[in-house]
Computed example of a mutant assay.
Amino acid sequence: MQSLPISLVVITHNEAANIARCLDSVPFVAEKVVIDSGSTDDTVAIARARGARVVDQAWLGFGPQRNFASTQAAHDWILVLDADEFLEPPLIEELQQRLPGLMASDAAAGILRRSTWYMGAPMRWYRPMVGEKLARLYHRGRARWTDARVHESLRFDGQAETFRAPFHHLHNPTLPHKQLKVLRYAELKCRDWHARGRPPRVWMAPLVYLAAFLKDWLLRLAILDGWRGFIVSHVAASYAMYKRLRYYEMHRNPESIEQARDVLLRHGLDR
């Protein structure tokens, strides 16, 4: 398979269960780069065995870590995947056909569609997990990730081309995995709010829960995915509410910021 002058970039931390599948699913790139933030499992060894160049970088937050990763690529065009994501033949074929034209143009980015597996099977109706559009291909001179600690996004000027075939995302293996991630993501988001001096507005928490649940369950069609749809709507709404509660606690008891940092560090949830 002829390689294209593109760098695949993956940021990792203890992704031994996923990294081989992710790297092996992208056979057409000239370079594979893994930016690892202190994995204690076999992530680094597996990545190197799969032909990836591994760069050690202490965790900077999602946005800054991705921007650092862009500087480590050998090529201007970059494909970004998370370790629990992978390509399949229909998208591989489409990318091989269309990427040369995209790269020869003045476009800044490519938009990929993501299909998510949840509780062991693909979601069929819930819109954020069926054909979600994400900017994952970009020219590093025309695009940059936001500096958010979590929920970063790619910002770019210029045109973007959308690809039809989806790539796949294996969602958190279990609800305990998800809840641990919720704790980490919520803490990072609250630190961003705290740095910006955002008012806590804890009175909004119950309303935020209700609005978020109904938005996902009804408007985003989670109701059509049965009990999995109910669960994913509840988890998302609980996360939205918990962030407000935790942020209120930061204001009410500033000592809780370092106390939470310590306990999350002990459990490997802050780095």
Rank of each mutant, 00 (worst) to 15 (best):
A30V: 04
A30Y: 08
A30L: 10
E31W: 03
E31Y: 02
K32Q: 13
V33C: 00
V33E: 10
V34E: 01
V34T: 07
I35Q: 03
D36H: 07
D36G: 05
G38S: 02
S39A: 01
T40A: 13
D42H: 00
V44H: 03
V44A: 02
A45Y: 04
A45Q: 12
A47Y: 00
R48M: 15
R48D: 13
A49L: 14
A49R: 15
A49Y: 10
R50D: 04
G51R: 09
A52C: 10
Q57G: 06
Q57V: 04
A58K: 03
W59K: 04
W59D: 03
L60E: 02
L60T: 06
G63H: 01
P64G: 00
R66T: 11
R66C: 10
N67F: 07
N67C: 04
F68D: 11
A69C: 11
A69V: 08
A69Y: 05
A69E: 04
S70L: 00
S70F: 03
S70I: 05
A73Y: 09
A73R: 07
A73L: 11
A74E: 14
A74G: 15
A74Y: 06
D76L: 03
D76F: 00
W77L: 00
I78C: 11
L79S: 08
L79R: 03
L81P: 02
D82G: 01
D82H: 08
A83Q: 01
E85H: 05
E85I: 15
L87V: 13
E88D: 13
P89Y: 00
P90Y: 13
P90M: 12
L91I: 09
I92A: 11
E93F: 06
E94Y: 08
Q97V: 11
Q97E: 15
R98P: 03
R98N: 05
L99T: 06
P100I: 02
G101Y: 12
L102R: 05
L102E: 07
M103K: 07
M103R: 09
S105E: 05
D106M: 01
D106Y: 05
D106R: 11
A108L: 09
A109P: 01
A109R: 02
A109H: 02
A109I: 12
G110S: 01
G110F: 04
L112A: 06
L112V: 01
R113D: 08
R114T: 09
T116I: 07
T116Y: 08
W117D: 15
W117S: 14
Y118C: 05
M119H: 06
A121M: 15
P122C: 07
P122H: 14
P122Q: 13
R124L: 15
R124A: 15
R124V: 14
W125K: 13
W125M: 14
W125T: 09
W125C: 15
Y126N: 15
P128R: 11
M129C: 12
M129H: 13
M129I: 02
V130K: 11
L134N: 08
A135P: 03
A135E: 04
R136A: 07
R136N: 09
L137D: 02
L137R: 11
G141S: 14
R144G: 04
T146W: 04
T146P: 07
D147R: 08
D147S: 12
A148R: 14
R149Q: 08
R149S: 12
V150E: 07
H151G: 12
S153Q: 14
S153H: 15
L154C: 06
L154V: 11
F156M: 08
F156A: 13
D157N: 14
Q159W: 14
A160E: 02
A160F: 09
E161M: 13
T162L: 13
